[in-house]
Simulated scan of single mutants.
Amino acid sequence: MKSKKAETKADDKPPIVFPKFDYTVDELLEVSAGGRTLLYDAIGEGKLIARKEGRRTVILHDEYLAYLKSLPAIPPRAPTPVDGEGEGVAP
């Protein structure tokens, strides 16, 4: 008969989860903000590398991250004057 303690230890182990290494275009559309045309345009322009697996078009996880990192960053906004501070206000 197994002890309760031994069963608890085995049950407490988290399951091993492997990351997804590649995505189909449809899978990327579910998790990204872009559309199908945007993805295929990026592929056609060579900005996003896609591969063929039989009839499926797949994008590797690392390639998609590299594509996202290559997009231009939005510059921070200049601080706005607060209550009388800034230009045009006499001290």
Rank of each mutant, 00 (worst) to 15 (best):
V82P: 01
A90K: 04
P75I: 02
T37G: 04
L28K: 07
L71A: 09
K69M: 13
P19F: 02
L60A: 13
G35C: 06
L29A: 07
P91Y: 09
P76F: 09
V82Y: 13
P91R: 13
E27F: 01
V82M: 11
P72E: 07
V58A: 08
R56V: 05
L29T: 03
V82N: 12
E87D: 12
K9H: 04
E85N: 05
I49Y: 12
I43S: 13
Y40L: 14
A33I: 04
D22K: 15
T80F: 12
K5V: 09
L38A: 11
Y67W: 15
E27C: 01
A50D: 13
K5F: 11
T8E: 13
P91C: 02
I49M: 14
A6H: 06
V25Q: 02
P75V: 04
I49S: 13
T8R: 15
R51A: 14
I16T: 11
F21M: 10
E85T: 09
L39S: 02
I16Q: 13
A42C: 10
P19C: 02
A33E: 11
D22V: 10
M1V: 04
I43P: 14
T8W: 05
V58Q: 04
T57H: 01
A6M: 05
T8V: 11
G46W: 09
I43W: 09
R36Y: 15
P91W: 10
H61P: 02
A66Y: 01
V17C: 05
E53Y: 05
R36M: 03
G35A: 09
E53L: 12
D11R: 11
T24N: 06
